[in-house]
Write a protein that binds this DNA or RNA. Structure first.
Lengths: 342, 342
DNA sequence: CTGAAAGCGCTAACAC
DNA sequence: GTGTTAGCGCTTTCAG
């Protein structure tokens, strides 16, 4: 802000022949100040276009009413929706959000956390990158009593509150559903097992298979990331190994899109040649060709709940005890995974 | 941050029996300080887990290396992509972004601008809401010499730099293309004419019609917003008035999706009963049924260019003279708007 | 190479 | 009601 000169409290105090304190209080509508004084101050403020310096205020207040948000990606329907909801919620509660994007990169993630700490945010809302395995930095945050809530991609056991979808159950149910439709050879293009969601979704998948008496075939299980490219690569992998399952359970919606891309490139067809279900969805799913049957994730609710929990923690100053909130999910039917005639 | 007690420069200075200044300089790797001293400082910093207080630094530096970003929506492919690119660019240039979302609401927009100003961001990157008509606040920013760049949804003539897609030309070309495919009765579900993009896209549409000797039919032109719901409502409007064109040019990709939704609900079919082209696209467009033929917008490039321009302005302190950058667009073919046999 | 002093703009605590 | 004093944590002169 390289204006000619920022107007300060002192400027307007001088013009009014009062002290800075009077002006400061008047601005914050303090009961100390007479209403005439308040009016005089307000008028001058409007006239001069004075904008209070929040930085100075925060410095002396030692809090910022600001939340640091760390997410792996923006351009992914789940996160876009969660973020939007976090912003809406923050606005209602009069908090500012400083969002940072790790791009699934651990170094960025750590750098961002440090920046946010340096900016003295009142708390942190984090969804970790797919490569985050080192928990040192979080243990350190715990030691420093930094209010922190993990959402979606969480790290348990560190004493922080976590909010996730019911990953295991959702996965179990969608795979069970596929089995009920007559599919037997069901593959999984999954995430990394070091992430809670990668692991839980894989476990749900395996549980459904076992429960149906289907022996899981390791060759049908590919682990990688959560992006479109990971889905693409995963499918190509199956294809090149001449090991196409009948049905693939994609760990995320973007992974499913990656499968779609690969399938299209290869001149194959869904569901004729290969069928797909996924964990997670998108508002435009209904317009896909074919639309995907999958697990609907309450992204907005998760974002909102995470922020509210964090704010409680910040404001009520309660001792932080690890609490895990699991949001229910449900299957949403599309044009894939239709009953298979044997 | 309600830690037991934040460690400050003074703490580490005392432990080292030197002054705060020495520590401060050592931390910023100032040439004044001996390397032994620097090492001692660094070691203690690591040991104590000291995190510098950026707020205090910013207060005395009178700048923040922070950019304020104001956008109307997140969950819209254009913005999601632009934001992602802005964040990546910011990271490279070592700037922090504070993003705010107006939700297409003018009051929020103004409130956010004021907050960002109060936070003393070094500059502002803005894409205005669809309802923004009052330019007072921007004139005020101009008076205060606040570095500001508009992108996509811009306000011209105020002396700020603007970056947009080539809205008029892109619209002209897609409509011209539709005409070449044999469509004559072409409608437009457009945005508000008080926005640059709504206006320019409508103008391009009209120019193409006129050039082809087609008299524009006012009944085929519906103005509204840029969202999925606006597309839905627009289409229902046509339908209820029993005035369906052969082809609709949607002002944005979400508007096109709204049309898709309405069409599906009514049991109609694209392109059998009604055809659609749109301005803007999405990475998942290729998987839509049918995929849309439309104008491809370089969202990431626009975001990047906007931020770079802003940073130049902030750092070079050049006098700000209005500059308008128009990014070229191109038609991307999908499954709609296929040659029509008369 | 190091440090003392002053100040960034605001607020809390306590007088007057 | 209003003002004085004393910081918040850091940086920038400018002496030493």
């Amino acid at each position: 802000m390289k204006s000619k000169k920022q107007i300060t409290l002192a400027d307007i105090a001088k013009k009014l022949n009062v002290s800075k304190v009077t002006v400061s209080k008047a601005l914050r509508n303090h009961s100390d100040i007479s209403s005439e004084m308040k009016k005089k101050v307000q008028d001058l403020v409007d006239e001069l276009g004075y904008t209070p310096n929040i930085i100075a205020r925060n410095l002396s207040a030692k809090k910022t009413r600001t939340i640091g948000l760390v997410i792996p990606k923006i351009n992914h329907h789940f996160f876009a929706e969660a973020i939007e909801s976090i912003y809406t919620t923050a606005q209602k509660s009069n908090y500012e959000i400083i969002m940072t994007v790790s791009q699934e990169n651990v170094d960025h993630e750590q750098k961002h956390i440090r920046s946010l700490l340096a900016m003295r945010v009142d708390g942190l809302l984090i969804s970790v990158s797919e490569n985050t395995t080192d928990t040192e930095i979080f243990k350190d945050l715990k030691k420093r009593h930094v209010p922190l809530v993990f959402f979606d991609r969480v790290i348990e056991g560190l004493g922080f509150n976590c909010i996730t979808s019911d990953d295991e159950k959702g996965s179990y149910e969608i795979v069970k559903y596929a089995i009920e439709q007559g599919y037997r050879k069901i593959g999984h293009i999954g995430g990394y097992n070091n992430t809670n969601i990668g692991k839980a979704r894989c476990e749900g998948y395996l549980r459904a298979l076992k429960e149906a008496g289907i022996e899981p075939d390791p060759a049908c299980l590919i682990c990688g990331g959560f992006s479109v490219n990971d889905g693409y690569r995963g499918f190509m992998n199956f294809y090149n190994n001449k090991n196409l399952p009948q049905m693939i359970f994609a760990v995320t919606f973007p992974v499913a899109l990656g499968i779609y891309r690969a399938v299209e490139e290869l001149g194959l067809n869904i569901p004729r040649d290969i069928d797909v279900v996924s964990f997670g969805d998108a508002s435009y799913n209904q317009f896909l060709n074919p639309s995907i049957t999958g697990v609907h994730q309450p992204a907005a609710e998760i974002g909102k709940a995470a922020l509210e929990l964090l704010i409680d923690q910040i404001e009520e100053k309660e001792p932080i005890e690890e609490k895990k909130i699991v949001m229910p999910v449900k299957i949403s039917l599309g044009q894939t995974c239709i009953k298979k005639e044997k």
